[in-house]
């Protein structure tokens, strides 16, 4: 064994001594040289000093249109965040509050991080489909949505480093060794360490722990006659109300009127400009049966890629059944 190790050490030493002639194979001679094009295809990282940033530019205006089309379904039209999806704007001066809001504007220390991340990983579920100028435009729009540039701003490789991030100075390198370890390394008390012990908080009172031990069986949609179900549906519909109206006097708002939607063809409400996929589905004969609605409401963006509905979906089957029952009660 020791001979074997000596041999490896000798090989490593030889390699170290002869390093400098770059084409030399390593100690084991394994792998093959990475080609320039291969490195270019994978090496995308952009650093705080702008290293790695390709030439290009994008305006706030172009970014706003792109954001609305490709990002707003999760992040909201103003990057304010939808449901549990992250807010990307706002939150300035909240970092020392009880409920800090950590966004691009309030928290992110480097603009390069935003460019790098959008370029590499966005849009969610469709990564690496944005052109360089589109990435610049989206970054410009997010700066604008955080009040860091004006609406005429155009971000370029040349002015990239002139943008000041508000929280650039907000970070310190891990100081636990000084701030915590001395206090947390004292020999601890073993006996009669406290005079009395009081319970201060209890998880039971919050009741936010998942209880289900086994997956729930699928439930059929019950007929919409049960008053309790209608009441439950009305409650669920509050989530929809910010965009949709239903019943007497309902008007098109952010989303179309939903009166009579159940068992109606898709994409036909008056006065609403549907997304292209929704129009196509309607022309293709899609009828909003309870079953189709349930599928749509479970995951709108998966059910219909490109829908303008920026709602992430209802998780609970009961909620879906209830809201469909509620909608069914407005037959139009």
């Amino acid at each position: 064994m020791s001979k074997c190790r000596d041999l490896i050490v000798a090989i490593v030493l030889t390699a170290t001594l002869t390093a400098g002639s770059a084409a030399l194979a390593g100690p084991y001679g394994l792998g093959r040289p990475a080609l320039t094009d291969e490195i270019a295809a994978w090496d995308h990282d952009v650093r705080p000093d702008g290293t790695g940033l390709p030439p290009g530019s994008g305006s706030v205006e172009a970014g706003e249109a792109l954001f609305s089309e490709r990002c707003a379904a999760c992040h909201g039209d103003f990057a304010e965040g939808v449901d549990n999806w992250p807010a990307l704007s706002g939150g300035q001066d909240t970092l020392d509050h009880d409920d800090p809001v950590k966004t691009v504007g309030s928290y992110w220390p480097y603009l390069s991080t935003l460019w790098d991340y959008i370029h590499r990983s966005k849009p969610y579920g469709n990564a690496q489909t944005l052109a360089t100028d589109e990435v610049y435009a989206l970054v410009a729009f997010l700066l604008y949505s955080n009040d860091l540039v004006d609406e005429k701003f155009v971000l370029t490789q040349g002015n990239f480093l002139t943008v000041e991030m508000p929280n650039a100075g907000g970070f310190i390198i891990d100081d636990r060794a000084q701030a915590e370890y001395p206090a947390f390394s004292r020999v601890p008390c073993m006996e009669r360490c406290k005079d009395n012990v009081q319970i201060t908080t209890r998880a039971g009172t919050l009741d936010v722990t998942p209880q289900s031990q086994t997956p729930e069986p699928p439930q059929a949609v019950p007929p919409p006659t049960d008053p309790a179900l209608l009441a439950a549906g009305e409650k669920v519909f509050r989530k929809c109300k910010s965009c949709h109206q239903v019943g007497e006097g309902a008007k098109t708002r952010i989303g179309p009127v939903l009166t009579g939607i159940v068992d109606a063809p898709a994409g036909v409400a008056d006065g609403y400009r549907y997304s292209k996929p929704m129009q196509a589905a309607g022309k293709g004969g899609l009828i909003w049966t309870s079953k189709e609605l349930a599928a749509f409401l479970t995951k709108p963006k998966s059910y219909m890629k490109g829908t303008k509905m920026s709602f992430s979906g209802l998780r609970k089957k009961d909620d879906i059944a209830a809201v469909i029952a509620y909608l069914t009660s407005f037959s139009g």
Binding site: D45, L95, W108, Y110, Y117, I173, D174
Partner: peptide, 27 residues
């Protein structure tokens, strides 16, 4: 690189509004 998961996430906000970064070790 100061990538997304080492700046916007996986940094530890302190009470005064500053944040620790590079808190790699698990105590």
């Amino acid at each position: 690189v100061e990538a997304k998961e080492e700046t916007s996430k996986y940094t530890d906000l302190l009470g005064d509004g500053t944040a620790r970064k590079w808190t790699w070790e698990m105590d």
